[in-house]
Every structure is written in C-alpha cells, then in structure tokens.
C-alpha cells in the first residue's frame, strides 16, 4: 500500500499540567474522507491546531506526504504548512468580516501569487493575468458553494450557514490536498447540513481532495465518513468504520457516561 498522505505519530501536547492530546497516532490515505469525533473538550480542535502549526507539539510528529511539518525539530509557520497543501476552516468562524465575499476567497489565492509587489503596483501583464485568472477561479468556487449571488456582500452580513460555506471556499482557494473541516455543519438546519454533506462528498469525489472533519452532528458523520477516530481526554479510544465505532462500548461510555450506558444496556 502506498504511503499515507497524513501520518501522525505519538502526537502529544501539554498545556501546563493538562495533557490535551495524548500520544495520538493517525494515518490518512489520499482520497479518504475521515472524521474525528469525541465529546466536548476531547482535544479535537487542538489536533487541528497542531496539524496546521498554530500549536507546537510537546512530543511526536506530523508528516504530510512524507515530509515532517510539525514536531521532531520542524517549526513550520502556519502559512508554510498551508502552502504545502493543508487548509482548514475554523470552528468559531474566522472570516475577514469587513471584506467582501469575493475578496475573502481572493485572499486564499494570495499565498500562491507569483508576481512581486512592484509588478502588482505597476500592473505589469504578468500580475494582471494572474489576477484575472484568480478572480475567475474565485467566482467558480463561489458558484460551487452557491454564494456567487452574494459576491459583493460583506462577509459579516452572511447568514451563519453561509459563512461556514464561505470558509470552505476560502480554504479551497489555497489549493489544498488535505482539507480540515472543523464542525462544518454547526448551526445549520437539516436542509443546509444535507447540502453540505453533498458538497463535501463532491469535493472528495470530483476534486480528489482528502478530507478530515470534526463534527458533533452524529447523523452527518455516520452517513458521510468512511473512517472515524474517536478521541476522549486527548487519547484515541476507538477507530474504524462508522458502524464499528457506533457500537464500541468505550465510545458509548465516553458520550453518555458509565451509569447511563449501563442502564441503556440493561433496557436493551
């Protein structure tokens, strides 16, 4: 079998006395659609922050396509990691609120802009070509997430669900190989979340993206993801296909607590 796109080995981070992520191992092959679940405070978002370089690990390492991006002496800044093909969305939406919807997506292209700033100021042909191409691609991305009719609107004026979609479009603009979605369906109604599920599968099937997502909406995760990793107190307690994980005693215990799990088992 080929080398996994993402390899996480023994990843650990401590905040003071708290071990937020404890010896996490994770492998994700190209083209897979995986989920990272677990109760509140399990350390899921911290894992994303470790993968994207926002938080430095205390131990362990992260490899993207065989290259160390975190841990083991590598200290890559978030923008470097993004350029290597890893993009993310944020749980607490972090859009550029005062910029237009289109500009939010255009920012995503800037990291890969080849023209220098002198070329940009003088509007040399090289810069203009790139700018025009990026604008067209940004409009394509907005059509993909069905926000093209709002392209001149300020990002802060969008509805909550639309803001989540715009974050995805902005992340896609950085041309990632691996996309990390942090609770993409949070705050969406059932119709919106169904549309989002279709979009996420499309991204994987048609654009060949590898996707790792955090989500609390269990129906969303169970229907969409092919493999799940369950975290509790920073450590992996189960992994496998959704139906395997669903019935795993430790998972039920982590979500519902010991007594209740036992009680429900008794009723069953």
């Amino acid at each position: 079998m080929s080398r996994p796109l993402l390899q996480v080995r023994g990843l650990t981070v401590r905040f003071g006395g708290l071990v937020a992520v404890d010896r996490l191992d994770l492998e994700l092959h190209a083209g897979r659609l995986a989920g990272l679940i677990g109760p509140n405070g399990a350390g899921k978002t911290t894992v994303f922050n470790l993968l994207t370089g926002r938080v430095r690990p205390s131990a362990g390492q992260v490899l993207l396509d065989g290259r160390t991006i975190a841990g083991n002496g590598a200290r890559l800044r978030p923008d470097r990691i993004n350029k290597l093909g890893l993009a993310r969305t944020f749980q607490n939406i972090r859009l550029f609120n005062q910029l237009s919807v289109l500009d939010n997506v255009l920012v995503g292209f800037h990291g890969r802009l080849r023209a220098g700033f002198v070329s940009a100021v003088l509007r040399l042909p090289g810069y203009c070509r790139e700018e025009e191409r990026n604008r067209a691609r940004a409009e394509d991305l907005l059509r993909l997430v069905e926000l093209d009719h709002l392209s001149q609107e300020k990002a802060e004026n969008l509805a909550y669900g639309q803001q989540r979609l715009l974050e995805i479009a902005r992340a896609l603009a950085t041309d990632p190989r691996l996309l990390l979605l942090d609770e993409p369906a949070a705050g969406m109604n059932p119709q919106e979340s169904a549309a989002l599920a279709r979009l996420v599968s499309r991204l994987r099937d048609q654009m060949g993206l590898t996707i790792l997502l955090i989500e609390h909406d269990m129906r969303f995760v169970m229907n969409l993801c092919e493999e799940l990793t369950v975290l509790d107190h920073g450590a992996v307690i189960a992994r496998g296909a959704p139906h395997q994980v669903q019935n795993h005693p430790q998972v039920i215990e982590a979500y519902l607590g010991v007594d209740q799990a036992a009680g429900e088992a008794g009723h069953a």
Partner: peptide, 15 residues
C-alpha cells in the same frame, strides 16, 4: 487587510 481582519486566519490561508 486580511491581516487586519484576522491575523490567525490570514496565516492559515498561506499569508
């Protein structure tokens, strides 16, 4: 302007 609006997000977008 992206840095002004949200530096963390700007960095995560490769800036």
């Amino acid at each position: 302007m992206a840095i002004r609006e949200d530096e963390t997000a700007a960095e995560a977008m490769g800036i």
